[in-house]
Design a protein around this nucleic acid. Sequence first.
DNA 1: TCAAAAGTGTTGCGCCTACACCCATGA
DNA 2: TCATGGGTGTAGGCGCAACACTTTTGA
Lengths: 232, 232
Amino acid sequence: MAKKLNLKTAAVEKSSHLEYFKIAVSVDCVIFGYEDKELKVLLIKSDLKEFAGLYSLLGDLVRPDEDLNEASYRVLKERTDLDDVFLQQVHTFGAVHRHPSGRVISTAYYSLVNINSHKLKIDNNDLHWHPVKNIQKLAFDHKEILDTCLEHLRGKIEEYPVAHNLLDEKFSLRALQELYEAIMNEPLDRRNFRKKITLKNWLIDLNEMEENVPHRPGKLYKFRPRLMKSRK
Amino acid sequence: MAKKLNLKTAAVEKSSHLEYFKIAVSVDCVIFGYEDKELKVLLIKSDLKEFAGLYSLLGDLVRPDEDLNEASYRVLKERTDLDDVFLQQVHTFGAVHRHPSGRVISTAYYSLVNINSHKLKIDNNDLHWHPVKNIQKLAFDHKEILDTCLEHLRGKIEEYPVAHNLLDEKFSLRALQELYEAIMNEPLDRRNFRKKITLKNWLIDLNEMEENVPHRPGKLYKFRPRLMKSRK
DNA sequence: TCAAAAGTGTTGCGCCTACACCCATGA
DNA sequence: TCATGGGTGTAGGCGCAACACTTTTGA
């Protein structure tokens, strides 16, 4: 009974805090792809005058009736038409002046997609895959977001079989190693890499060989299907 | 020149998206403490009718002119009067209906504080330290937030010397081990624990002994000062 | 036959776990 | 002298890094 004193309904609480509903929430997606032995990220030309000439990550405001995670899937789907992909939340960036349009707090996600398996929905915004290594500056705090996500990705691929999202279904161990080298940005020892991967037991030997290569063909592998839970 | 076509100022962009500024952003702080060989968390009685009788984490809406991280420091300061503490962002929870007052997206932080080194600012909301082990249910999605933060803490203390935030300045190795056992929720081998800690070189031997213990006194240690960067 | 990459093992090191005994102190 | 915890070392296993030679294929 005495406890009743301080209780208020949610509706009452909301009305007393209306002035706080002035912050927009967005998601920014670091969409990684892999092509020509390079890790790439999907960028778009910023359409803000303040960032004229700079590229930015793909992002959008979260809709009032949309889960935060769903918003990141929507962004991805809108741009790549993919909807069953690896996508992971990493960090939320909330500096007051990070966005010139007003107060926008943004949750960063990264995603791994196969560049060959989809067509970009290219509009007139210069959407393109950009090699991660060359990126010096992006609009907003997107360079920091990119760096943070790349750091997370580096930790992730050591422990989880997520690399299949970036590759075609069949691949040689060399191709897989080149992918790892591109992500880690360092050369790896071939024998040790093969041992480590074998030990993890992520791969299935397809008993097929590379074809049309100008050298001794390598065996082809694929990732074990049960490991490939997308959307998480 | 041609590029000018699609550019718009930030002000224009904001006006075209006003309907999205309807989501509130909050921070929820999992404030961990350590007392009586138990890991505890600071809880408050929920003041929402929808959650009558349940406890919740400490949180607050982020102010329009306040950095996200600063909001979490403010919440901590308001409740514990501490302002130079370990605080780390973990995850952002954004389900549509996670808050009955409306659309509130919440970024979760956890913090490590010394229960003895401050006085709680206790108001009439039944603010108290609650053993983590006994918690079954909390208001909102706060149980999930707690679990997520605890999992992160477990990883953190293995790699970083953050435990000093929970202990008094001087402590015995046994006390440190008991803290680790409380956090990991499992017994640890004494010899192996000491070896591991010694190897990490986090501690300074104070050449002092425990006093007033009913058994052989142990040596006292403290954490190396340079390691103790608070606020990350 | 050459160029290019495939494929393969061993050694040493550091870290981890499991495990048992004697020592110092206060009651 | 007893109860309580302090303090210590070793052995086996595992993962990791460093490192070189032979084989297969296409050109």
